[in-house]
Design a protein around this nucleic acid. Structure first.
Lengths: 233, 233
DNA sequence: TAGATTGTTAATCGATTAACAATC
DNA sequence: TAGATTGTTAATCGATTAACAATC
C-alpha cells in the first residue's frame, strides 16, 4: 500500500538503487536479491526492502527483484520516465562545469539553458549552449515548463535568483550558493554547499579527541564578559 | 562535558553556524542568542544550543553567545584553526571548477595541487596551479601531509584513486564520482554525488501523489515471472 | 530583583534494525 | 516439498523537541 509522506532519507537512496540497477542491467544481470543490493550499495538488505515496500511489492519471494522491472519502477517513482529539462543560473566556473557535466553524464536530465547577469559571461559558449542574460530566464522557464533549477551564483545574489525562478514556476532548486534560501511552501531546496561538505570532512581528518578536550578546557577559562553593545537587532 | 562520538548531523551543522558567525562579525554584531541564530540558520534554537553544548558551555545565560568567541571555538572544534591543504584528483570540468572555487572562496582550505592521468590535461594551468600527473600524488601527499582529498575522476577510476591516496595517508575524501568507495576503518568518505542530489530533487518537482498511486497499481499487474537465468553471481 | 537566555534532562518522534510469517 | 527471499510488523536505537532549573 503506497504510503504518502515518504521520508527524505528514503528518497535520497532511490537514485543510488537506480544507479546500481543500471550497472547490473549493463552486465545482463536479470535478478538481484536485497542481500546483493546491500553489498553493492552499502545499505542493509532490510533497509532496501523496506524502502522499496513503501511504493509497492516489486520483488518475488524466494527469487529477489527483476532488475529491469525494478529499474522501471524506480524511474517512475522518482519521475525520471521523461527527460527533465533544467536550467543553470550562474555561469561561472561551477555553473559551467555543471552544465557540461549534466549534458554528458546524466541520461535523465537535460540542461537546456544557462544564465548570468555578468555581461562578460553572456554570450559565452558552453558546449553548444550560449549563456543568456538572466532577464531571459522567466521566458525560458515558462516556455519549457521548467520545474527544476540549479543555482550557482554568489551567496549574495542567491535569494534574489531563487525568488525570480520560483515566481515563474520552478518547484525545486539545487542550491550551490553558501546561503540559506527562503522559499514558499511547496518549493523544495536541496543545498549542495561544497564548502560545508569540505569543512565537515576536515573535522574527521585529524584526531578529534584531543582537539575537543582542549576546546572544552579553554572555554571555561577564557569566556569573555558579556556586553550588550552592538547586539544583533 | 565534551561527549565523544558526536553524530554526523551535528558536525554538518557546525560549518553553517560558522558561516553565519562570519557574517555577523562582518556586521559588527557582538552577541547573538540561539533564537536569533535559529532565524538565520533555519535550525531550532533548542537544537543549536544542544549542538554547541556537546563541546562546552560557550554562552552566557541571559545574554547569548559572543560571536567572536563562539566562532573561535567552532573553528577549533572543526579543526580549521590552521589552513587545511588539500588536493584535487581529476582535472576535468568539475575538478577544475572546484580547484578555482576553493582557492578563492574558502579562507580555511587551500587546494595545493591538482592531478590527472590524461596526458591532454597534464600541464594545463588552473589559475596558478599546473595539473600534475597522478604518479606525483603520493609524493605531494607525503611532503605536505595531505589528509583531505577531493576526487573528481570518472566512476570507474574512483576506487583506484581512493586506494592510492589512502595508502599514502589521506584520511578524508570528498567523493564526487558516482561510485561507492570502499575505504579502511578510520578513513572518512563524504559523497557529493550531484546526479543523486538532482534526481532526488526531481522527485519533489512534480505531483508525487498520482505518480505513486500509478506505480503501485501497475506493480500488481505487470510483475514479470521470476527467472533464474543470468542471475547475479 | 526581574527578565532573559543558556545548558541539561526528560519526552517525543522518526528512522533503522531485527524478526518472522508469507510465499515463490 | 525444501530452500530462499520478500514484505511487514515489532523492537530498538538515535536524533529532535519540549520543558525547565540554573544563572547571568
Amino acid at each position: 500500500m503506497p504510503n504518502r509522506n515518504i521520508s527524505k532519507s528514503v528518497i535520497k537512496r532511490l537514485p543510488i538503487y537506480l544507479r546500481i540497477l543500471d550497472q547490473l542491467i549493463r552486465r545482463d544481470v536479470e535478478m538481484i536479491s536485497s542481500k546483493e543490493l546491500s553489498n553493492e550499495s552499502g545499505f542493509t538488505a532490510e533497509q532496501i526492502r523496506k524502502d522499496l515496500a513503501y511504493f509497492g511489492a516489486f520483488g518475488t519471494r524466494g527469487a529477489g527483484y527483476n532488475t529491469l522491472f525494478l529499474r522501471e519502477k524506480i524511474i517512475k517513482i522518482i519521475g525520471l520516465d521523461s527527460i527533465t529539462d533544467t536550467i543553470v543560473i550562474g555561469a561561472g566556473n561551477l555553473g559551467t562545469a555543471l552544465t557540461r557535466y549534466n549534458l554528458t553524464k546524466n541520461p535523465y536530465v537535460n540542461v537546456i539553458a544557462a544564465f548570468d547577469k555578468n555581461p562578460d559571461l553572456i554570450g559565452k559558449q558552453i558546449d553548444n549552449l550560449e549563456v543568456l542574460p538572466i532577464e531571459k530566464a522567466p521566458e525560458v522557464i515558462k516556455e519549457y515548463g521548467i520545474k527544476v533549477c540549479l543555482i550557482t551564483v554568489p551567496a549574495n545574489a542567491a535569494q534574489e535568483v531563487a525568488d525570480l525562478v520560483v515566481k515563474h514556476g520552478v518547484k525545486a532548486i539545487l542550491n550551490f550558493a553558501p546561503a540559506k534560501l527562503s522559499v514558499p511552501e511547496g518549493v523544495h531546496v536541496h543545498n549542495a554547499d561544497l564548502t560545508i561538505e569540505l569543512q565537515s570532512l576536515i573535522y574527521y581528518s585529524s584526531a578529534e579527541e584531543e582537539r575537543l578536550t582542549r576546546v572544552a578546557r579553554e572555554a571555561k577559562d577564557k569566556k569573555p564578559k558579556p556586553s550588550k553593545s552592538f547586539t544583533y537587532d
